Simulated scan of single mutants.
Amino acid sequence: MALKHTLAAGLAALCPLICLAQAAPAPAQALYPWQVGPSRSTAEAYFTNLQNGAKIETPFRLAFGLSSGWGLAPISAPQAGKSGHHHLLINRELPLDFKKALPFDDQYMHFGKGQMETVLMLEPGTYTLRLLLADDKHLPHFVYSKPLKITVTRKNKDIDPKSLISKEISFPNIAPDARLKPPFTVQFQASGLNVAHVSQQQKDTGHFRLTVTPKNGGKPVEMDFPNGQTETRLAPPAGAYVLKLDFMDNMNMGKTLADPVSTPVRVE
């Protein structure tokens, strides 16, 4: 009887530790060298090439971004976690019910293939634009942009919208020879291409890979973004670097879907 009491007391003492271990969340994915976590706990979608109050002519190629480790995922292969696809709301407020699927009409443009862009064909006038991320069932996430008010001054009927789209990638927020203070955000942009999680194994989709090479001959740091992420934040030591961006084929390891782009920067 004394032995039973001793065993029971020992198990009781260990139970909180066992339960705590079982309840502990899985460790977060390790960061690459020089990579730092998001600057804010809440994610947002944003426009990379249009500012509030802008005056534009259409057709106009409008590009999208996504922060805080969230990634793009085509709806054809449902993907859980921090993933979704963009929706452009035109003259619409955020939905009151986030448990209701977004409608399909001229004021709710869906980008379910993993696109990072669209070509606006709006008539002259004033508009309010907003991005909203949603899952494969078009149920909204709490990931969206601030409303952006623009004025379309002219619609050019002689411009082919398709001429504004070409298969290429870029750094939309990093100019050549930019002087950067860490930590800084590096945005990735894909035009004429669809972004997806590698695990979705979708044909004609890819993901970004960033290589940061010190100009002093140091070892390059290669960063892969297999979950459809379209930006990262970096804090390398002061010095001169070359940033190289690739768009990797999700179906063929080692193959790229666009020409790489590189830009020199200096970290102060």
Rank of each mutant, 00 (worst) to 15 (best):
141 H>A: 13
133 L>A: 09
108 Y>Q: 07
107 Q>V: 06
113 K>T: 13
117 E>W: 15
100 K>G: 00
155 K>C: 11
121 M>V: 09
109 M>Q: 14
67 S>E: 08
67 S>A: 13
136 D>R: 00
118 T>H: 00
114 G>V: 11
132 L>Q: 12
73 A>Y: 00
150 I>H: 00
68 S>K: 01
83 S>M: 06
135 D>A: 06
116 M>L: 13
84 G>E: 02
158 D>I: 07
102 L>I: 09
88 L>P: 03
68 S>C: 11
160 D>F: 04
134 A>I: 02
106 D>R: 13
148 L>D: 02
108 Y>K: 02
93 E>K: 14
125 G>T: 05
73 A>C: 04
150 I>C: 01
147 P>N: 00
140 P>F: 01
66 L>S: 01
96 L>I: 13
127 Y>E: 05
147 P>A: 01
74 P>T: 12
102 L>C: 10
74 P>D: 06
147 P>C: 03
99 K>T: 12
123 E>F: 02
122 L>G: 05
116 M>K: 00
132 L>C: 10
74 P>G: 07
98 F>V: 14
113 K>C: 08
151 T>G: 03
140 P>H: 02
127 Y>V: 10
154 R>E: 15
131 L>M: 10
151 T>L: 08
139 L>G: 01
146 K>F: 10
65 G>N: 04
108 Y>N: 11
94 L>I: 11
135 D>M: 05
87 H>C: 06
129 L>V: 06
138 H>E: 09
98 F>D: 12
92 R>D: 06
139 L>W: 04
140 P>T: 06
139 L>T: 07
116 M>C: 11
95 P>T: 08
149 K>I: 08
86 H>R: 03
106 D>F: 04
74 P>E: 08
109 M>Y: 10
93 E>Q: 15
66 L>A: 08
91 N>F: 08
152 V>H: 01
158 D>K: 13
111 F>R: 03
71 G>T: 09
73 A>M: 05
124 P>Y: 01
133 L>M: 14
123 E>D: 15
84 G>H: 01
112 G>D: 11
138 H>M: 07
106 D>W: 03
111 F>H: 10
140 P>S: 07
83 S>R: 12
97 D>F: 11
103 P>H: 06
93 E>R: 14
94 L>E: 11
110 H>T: 14
158 D>L: 12
77 A>T: 14
79 Q>F: 04
99 K>Q: 15
86 H>W: 14
160 D>G: 08
94 L>V: 08
79 Q>P: 06
65 G>L: 03
80 A>V: 13
148 L>E: 04
96 L>R: 15
115 Q>K: 11
77 A>D: 09
158 D>S: 15
128 T>G: 06
76 S>A: 15
159 I>L: 15
104 F>E: 13
146 K>M: 11
76 S>K: 14
116 M>S: 10
67 S>T: 15
114 G>A: 13
79 Q>G: 09
124 P>S: 08
112 G>I: 08
125 G>I: 00
102 L>W: 07
83 S>C: 08
116 M>P: 03
160 D>E: 14
90 I>A: 05
71 G>H: 02
126 T>A: 15
95 P>Y: 10
126 T>G: 13
74 P>V: 09
117 E>K: 02
88 L>E: 02
90 I>N: 07
155 K>E: 12
128 T>M: 09
68 S>H: 06
78 P>Y: 08
152 V>T: 03
148 L>M: 11
124 P>M: 03
139 L>P: 02
110 H>L: 13
76 S>V: 15
120 L>R: 00
